[in-house]
Amino acid sequence: MTTPLIEARGLVKRYGTTDALRGASLRLLPGEVLAVTGPSGSGKSTLLHCMAGIVRPDEGEVRYGAERLDQAGENRRSTLRRTDFGVVFQFGQLVGELTALDNVALPLLLAGTSRAAAHKSAGTWLERFGVLGQAGLRPGEMSGGQGQRVALARAMVTAPKAVFADEPTGALDSLAGEQVMTALVHAARESGTSVLLVTHDAQIAAYADREATVRDGVVETEDEPAAEVTR
């Protein structure tokens, strides 16, 4: 069996009196696209946040290789987000004040890459996702689909090990959503990036290799990994 890229075990997360997670376990394998589905409020987003190191679980562990993300400090988890992980949300992950080009270059700039080099790779990724023409626009000036593709470019610009996508097509119509998903899956397959894809839309979940369903804060079903992930 392949060793997982990221493994969550027995995650518990409470917000006040609501238990968002109550013992959720999930494995994200290297290079796979894993869909997480489930009813609204079941804890999908919280699970994703925990596995991406954005939120610390109250109990349980998140392993990334030999590292314990649930114990890693704020700085280490921030660094991981600009080197090993990328995130795409439904909206709100782009910096409204920055142009698309700067937004995509942001993780590189934050890591200290030179401006010219960062803009060069940002441009390449914008072109791959077909939004190079919008490079000079700010998020407020783009359509939802264009914005999501810019967000994808930003998630991929660091050649991450994993991309965490929470309803990346939630605000798009089906055609725009299809384009975003195709772009994401192709890019991920090509670079061997794992994708954790939270969605409530089965048509979007169908882009994934496996599906896990969440209900009431636990992972109810998780497809067995295929003997060999086809790609």
């Binding site: 700085n75 921030s78 660094t79 987000r81 995130v87 910096v95 409204g96 942001l106 993780p107 934050l110």
Partner: peptide, 19 residues
């Protein structure tokens, strides 16, 4: 509020609290 949102977006993109 807007500033808070911007800082959050920066953090999400991997900025440390210090940055």
């Amino acid at each position: 509020l807007q500033r808070e949102r911007r800082f959050a977006a920066l953090r999400l993109a991997g900025a440390t609290p210090r940055q």
